[in-house]
Design a protein around this nucleic acid. Structure first.
Lengths: 135, 135
DNA sequence: GTAGAATCTGACATAGATGTCAGGTTCAAC
DNA sequence: GTTGAACCTGACATCTATGTCAGATTCTAC
């Protein structure tokens, strides 16, 4: 089953995902991303590595740590009972963390909005004063 | 104007805000929080320090850095034109950052939910299989 | 005035993803 | 074959808020 033997090197994967080469190597080191190697030890990736990296980015961007992601992935890749049970637990915890963080961000954003209104008012008042003084 | 001369030391402020003593000292070092000192150089805070610390926490929790907060505070404390103009700019940028981060978190949460459904399904199927084999 | 709790300063440690550099090897194209 | 680009590994740097420790000082209560 020859599949499509078209494989890319790390530079291309980096270009196609927008993720730095350094990070790709780091992901591999954490066991989040795998590659085959050429005779000369250069990494080769299949096309689906692009999707894998995008998945990783989404999880990283949601604030999951590499370690947490490493706990999750086996359940995605090779589901088995024991693995999945812990993974589900981790996912629940992460979900709660995300909810909490969203709440914090919303609260801060509102506070920021209030501050911005205050600041804008201050500037407007100041401008009016200046105009009045000039007139 | 004697005000209320009731002043607390750092331990009490820490207890009342839930923020570690270490962090309170750090905030002061960054210019985000001020204190008077006893003859023996111990920090004394007025009651309103509690609110100040809560404000700081809200901003920190929203992901603002101490440096960013330092840019903002003068506009809250002693509004003046120049300061306010830059502060408004910073606030706008932070607001955008917060929006982006919320989006990222929502996307991750959805992805996580999908993964959880898959994992739960897997477990359910597995359990059914076991039951069937036992029966 | 003395004991013990609280506080002071200054320094070093931590975490985690990523940047960056050095010195060496491999690959692709000509 | 040769050259220049791409890649390899390993190491050290970064950033920021906070923890922690040590040694000294101050405050509070008795």
């Amino acid at each position: 089953m020859g599949k499509d033997d078209r494989r890319m090197r790390i530079g291309e994967l980096s270009a196609r995902t927008g993720v730095s080469i350094r990070s790709l190597r780091y992901y591999e080191q954490c066991g989040l991303l795998t590659s085959t190697r050429t005779a000369g030890a250069q990494r080769l990736y299949a096309d689906d590595a692009v999707d894998r990296v995008r998945l990783l980015r989404r999880l990283f961007d949601g604030g999951l740590s590499s370690e947490t992601i490493a706990t999750l992935l086996p359940c995605v890749d090779t589901p088995s009972g024991d693995i999945t049970v812990q993974a589900l637990d981790v996912m629940r915890r992460e979900r709660e963390r995300i909810d909490a963080q969203i709440s914090a961000l919303l609260a801060t954003r509102e506070h920021l909005d209030a501050l911005m209104v205050g600041a804008a008012d201050h500037l407007a008042r100041q401008r009016d004063d200046t105009l009045a003084a000039t007139a």
